Simulated scan of single mutants.
Amino acid sequence: MSEHTIQATSRNVEGKGASRRLRRAASIPAIVYGGNAEPTPIQLDHEKVWLAQQNEWFYSSILSLDIDGKVESVLLRDMQRHPFKQIIMHLDFQRVNANETLRAKVPLHFLNEDASPAGKAAEVVVTHELNEVEVSCLPKDLPEFIEVDLSSLTVGDVIHLSQIKLPNGVEIPELKLGKEHDVAVVAAKHGRVEAAASDEDGAAAE
């Protein structure tokens, strides 16, 4: 697990007016909550966070949040963006206990699709039904992403959640809810089958 440090400073003034002033000063109001401590209002430099949030790890990794020199391990739990401007309005971070299991959504990385039998066939359409999955694990075991190897994917194949190879110490809680929750992650179908299904859907809608 890589370490990513985000700089922040504490703030004493809260409320909409204070948040607007922070944003005009190119800062982001945020909150840190959870654990055995009280929620802590903080502020972060907008430019630095804007660059950081362009990376996948910002959303799925344990972050080291440096608040006035005191470092806390946190997960990003919510990000509010401006509806049309490139502005982050607010961030929510949750404290992480190294000894407590957590849940987090982790992106899926699909490997070797182009080299697979399905990927090489012009008439086959490979669809990614999921791009991320919620996992349960200790903070030290949280992966930044999970790889799904598609090298042996052939037409007609469907890869389900239960077929994903997970790192040690990592589980998918949804699989404990029953077979109906073992949903498809990747499917390889003939293009003409996909087209026929689309035509049928369109006729039904009419």
Rank of each mutant, 00 (worst) to 15 (best):
M1S: 11
S2Y: 05
E3P: 11
E3A: 14
I6W: 08
Q7S: 15
T9S: 15
S10Q: 08
R11N: 06
G17Y: 02
A18I: 01
A18D: 00
A18P: 07
A26Q: 14
A26T: 03
S27C: 11
S27P: 12
A30H: 07
I31H: 01
I31T: 07
V32A: 08
G35T: 04
A37R: 14
E38M: 13
E38G: 10
T40N: 13
I42S: 05
Q43W: 04
L44W: 07
H46C: 11
E47C: 11
K48H: 13
K48V: 14
W50E: 12
Q53C: 15
N55S: 15
N55H: 14
F58P: 09
Y59R: 06
I62Y: 02
I62N: 00
D66K: 07
I67Y: 00
D68I: 00
D68E: 05
G69C: 03
K70V: 15
L75E: 08
L75V: 09
L76H: 00
R77S: 12
D78G: 07
M79A: 14
M79K: 14
P83I: 08
K85Q: 12
K85V: 02
Q86F: 12
Q86E: 15
I87A: 12
I88G: 11
H90C: 01
H90I: 02
V96T: 03
N99Y: 13
K105N: 15
L108P: 09
H109I: 15
D114T: 07
A115W: 00
A115N: 10
S116R: 07
S116C: 05
A118F: 04
A118D: 03
K120T: 04
K120M: 06
A122Y: 11
V124G: 01
V124I: 08
V125F: 07
V125P: 03
V126A: 02
T127A: 12
T127Y: 06
E129N: 14
E129I: 15
N131H: 15
E134W: 00
V135I: 12
S136V: 06
C137A: 02
C137W: 03
L138F: 09
P139F: 08
K140G: 02
D141S: 03
I146K: 03
E147P: 10
V148T: 01
V148F: 01
D149F: 07
D149K: 05
L150N: 01
D157K: 09
I159M: 11
L161M: 06
Q163R: 09
I164D: 00
L166Y: 05
L166C: 04
P167Y: 04
P167D: 01
P167F: 03
V170Y: 04
V170L: 06
I172S: 04
I172G: 04
P173K: 00
P173F: 07
P173T: 01
K179R: 13
E180S: 10
E180I: 04
V183Y: 02
V183S: 12
A184L: 02
A184K: 07
A188F: 06
A188E: 02
A188K: 06
H190N: 10
R192M: 05
V193M: 10
E194A: 12
A195L: 12
E200Y: 14
E200K: 13
A205F: 05
